[in-house]
Design a protein around this nucleic acid. Structure first.
Lengths: 341, 341
DNA sequence: CTGTTAGCGCTTTCAC
DNA sequence: GTGAAAGCGCTAACAG
């Protein structure tokens, strides 16, 4: 049997209440007594039963997700996963609330973050827009004792506890590697489509992509980045323009969302143009385009994993508990036609 | 506040003990009373607090892992992950035991399985060798009320509750897809290295690989499969022989373990031969070979995920609880030089 | 400062 | 058949 608080109390010659005070670093214990109890805890090899503690406290973890209201399948997927987590709230002792904010708008995030300062949830997960004022607002929340996790796009330099998302520089490099090898001996130009250079994940993907292309595949020249704001309509127009203006384009890297528009362009260009395409995020649209051979590879981050991981981490950090790093690492999934889930 | 057993008791006008009997399907309740209680449970929308129940029962889940004593890094990794799970046993209420059996030996697995019949652990996870007697022994355990999970290699046709491993047909197809596209316009032969055709995972990978090569890349002819028994020494000898006998080999698919031997051969052949290689399982050896360009892509299953997932599933099945399917799906990871974890 | 006591939600004797 | 009461490991009033 694992040792319990009773065993500590007996060993240290004190009452349960005192043991509890020491265990939870609450005041009202003499230094000497405290030391005695800590000694006993160590001697005996005690580890707290978190489930029992939570039961006694009737603890629930109030959690907040701040998500952009982007009209793209990926963000819809994230929202859907959060909703499923809400459905599981009972068993997981969580109370989850979602705040939707306009996309690519730092001030909206800051406002949401500041609104939470008084509410003091156990944890906040946000899709961060990379701006100093967001960083400051995050740091304030952390200082107020809230556990903060960035989701999908990170906020380096801030004091957030954890990032639940993929390594986007590696993602860009991987895209370049695949595109380069798939293109093989061909020669020509490569177009890059992004959402916005305001979000860190897009910037990093571009950075990784451009770097590896330059290092390993200098035979392909990169066209200037096209920013489609993750908007299918706009993307469609921009890509059509790019393709008609640049007849030598043989490859496309779509590093943002709004691929519905890209796919439309690809379909229209199909008989004449032979394009090798790598895109991000597996959605109903990109999936069927992959199957049809319009897209050659999809890089993906598992939204379900990201959301579940963010919740686990927020809970753990709220209690000052350790996480299992490998379990919380968000993989960059590579999907080809043949390994679709 | 979520409804509790007390609420049910009050609503049904019975005592807690009776509610508990109904909840746990124990005898000693009149049919009429039982119905009344079940009614109340439904009306009130009760869901049991598993943590509290486990606390009251001082429940621990005795779990057994049956693993082959293969001298390869992948199985060592699995064992390592199980050990880490043992270290977490306290908080997870598990008591994990490992039984090691000789590799590729159905009778050893059967003996282990039968030995467990009397012990009746809550769950058993095994790396299955595909044989009728193993299937029968698994079915017996399931019939005895033990929850059984196959790990890494499945046992279709048996009554195991769950398979914690990758889709190996898809893995083989993915390997073919990568190899075919990476080889591009070249022409020549492709060699396939397996561990043993006795294990289902290897057979399935081969099947998927051969099928896709035939469909999509008929320009490459496949050499007969080489069986290296996952043994680095043997693999080294066999691959050396294959390479010298077949000068037209331009690609290799290593679908089993023992890649240490393969890598040795690759190093030795290096200046003269230009080989495109796809291998399975990320280990210290394959990782550095990937970095050095000896291997072009590695297909991997995350041993840590597999072990943690197996444990979650065994526990859930033992209690008749639902799992989150997406969380328990083991991905086929594709690693290139650029997306190594 | 320290201890006693009554729960958290559920299970389990042991009576009736 | 059914119920009262004690207790799982921990926390939180409330006394002293």
């Amino acid at each position: 049997m694992r040792p319990t608080v009773h065993d500590i109390a007996a060993a240290a010659g004190v009452s349960l209440a005192t043991v509890d005070r020491v265990l939870n670093q609450r005041p009202g214990v003499r230094q000497a007594t405290r030391r005695k109890v800590e000694e006993a805890i160590r001697e005996i090899g005690y580890v707290r039963d978190v489930a029992a503690a939570n039961l006694a406290k009737s603890r629930v973890y109030p959690l907040v997700f701040i998500l952009p209201t982007s009209d793209n399948s990926f963000m819809h997927g994230v929202l859907e996963e959060v909703k499923q987590a809400v459905a599981r709230s009972g068993g997981e002792r969580t109370a989850i609330r979602v705040i939707e904010v306009p996309a690519f708008d730092p001030s909206a995030i800051v406002a949401a973050l500041q609104g939470l300062a008084s509410e003091k949830p156990a944890g906040v997960a946000l899709v961060a827009t990379d701006a100093p004022e967001v960083r400051a607002a995050v740091d304030d929340l952390v200082a107020a004792g809230v556990s903060v996790v960035t989701l999908v796009s990170d906020l380096t330099g801030s004091r957030r506890h954890h990032y639940a998302g993929v390594d986007n520089i590696a993602a860009g490099r991987t895209a370049a590697h695949l595109l380069g090898r798939f293109l093989g001996a061909k020669e020509g130009e490569v177009a890059v489509l992004a959402g916005s250079m305001l979000v860190r994940d897009h910037r990093e993907r571009l950075e990784g992509f451009a770097a590896l292309m330059a290092e390993q595949f200098p035979q392909f020249s990169l066209l200037p980045v096209v920013e489609g704001r993750d908007d299918p309509e706009l993307v469609n127009v921009l890509i059509n323009a790019t393709l008609s203006k640049n007849p030598r384009v043989i490859g496309i890297y779509s590093l943002g969302a709004g691929n519905r528009g890209l796919i439309k362009s690809l379909k229209e260009s199909r008989p004449q143009r032979d394009l090798t395409v790598v895109a991000h995020e597996l959605t109903a649209h990109t999936r069927s385009a992959l199957k049809d051979g319009l897209i050659d590879a999809i890089l993906n981050q598992d939204a379900g994993h990201e959301v579940r991981s963010a919740i686990r981490v927020m809970k753990a950090k709220a209690d000052g508990l350790a996480i299992i790093p490998a379990q919380e690492r968000i993989r960059l999934d590579i999907f080809l036609k043949d390994n679709l889930p």
